[in-house]
Amino acid sequence: MALSRESIIHDLNRIFAENFEIEDPDPDENLSQAYEFDSIDAIELLVEIEKILGFKLTQEEKKQAVEIRTINQICDYMEGLAEDRA
């Protein structure tokens, strides 16, 4: 399933607002430093990413997310996953 960057950002903004009480995060801000987004949030976000992508992530794919710090990096990560599975 092809996902546009716009729709990914739209979904992420919704998740960040509903799940993490973070409204309209700056796409290039370090989420940990700017919004106190931590490892526990990251685990919850991975579950939400699976729902958006419509498939389960492998352990290896999840480990690739460790270095992610910003919304734009999350988008890149999701686009890459969608492309690999296409």
């Binding site: 526990i40 685990i43 919850e44 579950v47 699976e50 389960k56």
Partner: peptide
């Protein structure tokens, strides 16, 4: 199953 995570444990 996948939604049982670290937060639930904590």
């Amino acid at each position: 199953y996948s939604s049982v995570n670290a937060v639930d444990y904590l």
